[in-house]
Design a protein around this nucleic acid. Structure first.
Lengths: 243, 243
DNA sequence: GATAATTTGTGCGTATGTATG
DNA sequence: CCATACATACGCACAAATTAT
């Protein structure tokens, strides 16, 4: 679980700054606290704070302007839509500590749309996992995952051991899986979603629906993720290819 | 009967059904009019209506259930985020008639964020094109495009001839360009955006910001597009590649 | 529970226009 | 010019699923 070696202090400060940005719900162009203020708040040397800021600047998250201060450039989190959907890795790349809280797990009859996405017959049973994704302790996403019970009859049992979909699938014999297609839409949150994600009424959710397939191209997971649009944005980088 | 021999009648009916779905602002799970109703409304044979429906079903837009009716499966339009951002082609693939209305064109000093995205010095001049995108006559997107004036000094002059960014760029010597990165977020519309796009107050806009580069990798256009989330959804298909 | 009305699914028949050789 | 093949368009009848009465 915890790494044997301690993380450097400046990285810890980086995380605390990001957590602060999330908790204050800061949006692009908002002004960040000054160096000296954070020195006092975190009880570290000015160089340590500067190193943390520099790191955030290089990642494109903030922007420094001499004499004026530092300003938010991007939402706290960029969710990279790549071939491999790994919540933990995406957040770890941004020096955020990923975690997930299980909200519910059980077997259901697949709704028609989900049966179709997974190439199942109508009425087939699926495992439904609902989770809350957190970045450094702050809720950022609410996701539902559906997997064919027929193919993974012991999924729930294994999941309780790992608390990770990727590792549970490995136990079920799926070494790798990739995102096949993702559809993105948006809507306002329900009251339940607002209380779980802690978002104001007028902040829309970004909704992604994606289908993941195993190396042979078989659909093994259908997922729907809700993300607060004031804290997270999607990022799609096209692979370069000649036409 | 007046029937354009250009396109078969059933395709014309397909377009009219889609236009109807847009104008009625239909969302997934809404029920469509019956065959017999559309036979009366469009004045065509039942087989012709059925063929149009079948076509929409094969494209995944609607779903038929015997004895119950046909139901909307997806928002009227899927905007495919691929390597080449070509509004016209994306809509034409869905049997929608693309068009664009110019809202404004002129030279501005680039805002800092845009100068950075285009790798320009602060204070550089850019051409700003604002357009409304239409699908079969219905507004679906509102987009702002920024291009470096230094590289395309005669852009405005050429644009007035073509009314197409792709063709104008070709006249400027750019034969091809690809999308490098796209960021997706969401927010509620301003009153101006609502009046242009004709969306209700509570329907969020999907906001995409993308940077397009020429074949040598130079940024040539930065674009921001707003889309009504009840009419359009983004679709991202990952290119298959082995790991 | 039984029946009728509605709606989609399927099959067959007829006629016309267009491209091909 | 003709024969053939194919797509388009319309008309009619009945089967199957669902819903309302």
């Amino acid at each position: 679980m915890a790494s044997a070696r301690q993380d450097p202090l400046w990285l810890e400060v980086t995380r605390r700054i990001q957590t602060m940005m999330q908790e204050a719900a800061m949006v692009p162009s908002d002004r960040l606290p000054t160096e000296t203020e954070l020195v006092a708040r975190f009880g570290v040397n000015r160089h340590t704070v500067r190193r943390a800021f520099k790191h955030l600047e290089e990642k494109g998250k903030i922007e420094a302007r001499q004499g004026r201060g530092r300003f938010v450039r991007m939402p706290a989190i960029q969710y990279q839509i790549g071939a491999r959907p790994r919540f933990s890795n995406i957040l770890a790349d941004q020096d955020l500590e990923p975690s997930a809280e299980l909200l519910g797990i059980g077997v259901e009859t697949a709704p028609e749309a989900i049966a179709r996405a997974l190439s199942l017959r109508t009425g087939s049973k699926v495992v439904h996992v609902e989770r809350m994704g957190l970045a450094s302790g702050n809720p950022v996403s609410l996701s539902s995952h559906y997997l064919p019970l027929g193919r993974f009859p012991r999924f729930i049992e294994y999941y309780e051991r790992h608390h990770s979909i990727t590792r549970t699938l490995q136990d079920c014999g799926v070494e790798d899986y990739v995102r096949r297609s993702t559809r993105v839409t948006s809507r306002l949150p329900t009251s339940r979603e607002r209380s779980i994600l802690g978002v104001p009424k007028h902040v829309p959710l970004i909704v992604t629906r994606s289908c993941n397939v195993d190396p042979r191209g078989w659909p093994i997971e259908y997922g729907e993720a809700l993300m607060a649009s004031d804290r997270i944005e999607l990022e799609i980088t096209s692979p370069l290819r000649s036409g």
